[in-house]
Design a protein around this nucleic acid. Structure first.
Length: 279
DNA sequence: AGCATCACCTGGCTGC
DNA sequence: TGCAGCCAGGTGATGC
């Protein structure tokens, strides 16, 4: 599932190819990929405009246009952006919902089997040129940093389980189920712990683990799993899955203490953890 | 207000 | 081997 490291890897790919390119044609074939506004409106507002830069906050991609509008893309569960330099040689693969034809003949394609992903264009932007609605996101650990004090403030007075808070995009932007489990394990804290029970030292460990793990995962170009099949803009697999210590590893020994890793349910979602060395 | 639950989807896997 | 049923999970809506 694309989380911050995967989306950032895609963003870096986009930043290398999009700036200066003009949109010659934008076609929407899937019915659900554009649902916040009519597909014709997206097409009308974007066609003929040029891309200025590719930005990101949390799991949201923001493709800034030369007139200040922003094309927002969210990959959700199974969305994939694919850059195709020579479209003639590569037929559209199944579940291709959006195709952007660029002025050098290349294409940006959006493929999304589970159809949760979304595209929309907005002109309501902040001073930094990003959509005003990004205001509801918490700090992005890569773009904004994440100090222990800031995380403590965000977690204060919350009674919900730690994992529910870490994956709440209003608390911290960019963390999903996979990295939340890895962060909790690295910090030695159980994902089921009520936020209000965390000590200052534990929150500091969580903030540090968040920065470290996300940075390392970006360096390794994200995690590619068996079922989600995440790939970057050029179709390459990520490498961070080799570093996963708990996610998807129930029944195997904890790499830190040797106890058997468990899968527990938190908020109707799976969480992987070690009851031997996480408290 | 804050928290829990559900709906949205389809491919891949499990178990019979 | 075939197939039914389960599971994956980010986000927004809904309900309490």
């Amino acid at each position: 599932m694309p989380e911050l490291p995967e989306v950032e890897t895609v963003r870096r790919g986009l930043e290398a190819v999009l700036p200066g390119r003009r949109v010659e044609r934008l076609s929407v074939t899937g019915r659900r990929a554009v649902r916040r506004q009519p597909a014709a409106e997206l097409r009308r507002r974007v066609t003929g405009r040029s891309f200025v830069r590719a930005d990101r906050r949390g799991k949201y991609l923001a493709l800034v246009l030369d007139d200040g509008q922003v094309v927002v893309v969210h990959l959700r569960m199974s969305g994939q952006l694919l850059y195709v330099p020579e479209p003639a040689g590569l037929p559209l693969q199944p579940h291709t919902h959006v195709v952007v034809r660029l002025d050098d003949g290349s294409e940006l394609r959006f493929v999304d089997p589970r159809t949760f992903g979304e595209w929309f264009v907005t002109g309501e932007v902040r001073r930094d040129g990003l959509p005003a609605e990004f205001d509801r996101l918490g700090p992005d650990p890569l773009c904004d940093g994440l100090s222990a004090a800031r995380l403590a403030q965000r977690l204060a007075r919350r009674r919900s389980p730690l994992k529910a808070a870490l994956t709440d995009q209003a608390v911290v932007a960019g963390i999903g189920s996979l990295y939340a489990d890895e962060i909790c394990h690295a910090a030695g804290v159980l994902p089921s712990r009520p936020c209000e029970s965390l000590t200052g030292a534990e929150v500091a460990a969580l903030a540090g683990a968040t920065r470290r793990i996300l940075r390392r995962a970006v360096e390794m170009r994200g995690s590619s799993l068996r079922d989600a099949r995440y790939r970057d803009l050029m179709g390459e697999l990520g490498g961070y899955q080799a570093r996963h210590r708990v996610y998807g590893r129930a029944g195997t020994p904890c790499p830190r203490c040797g106890a058997t890793l468990r899968r527990v349910i938190i908020g109707a979602r799976s969480a992987y953890c070690c009851t031997g060395c996480q408290h």
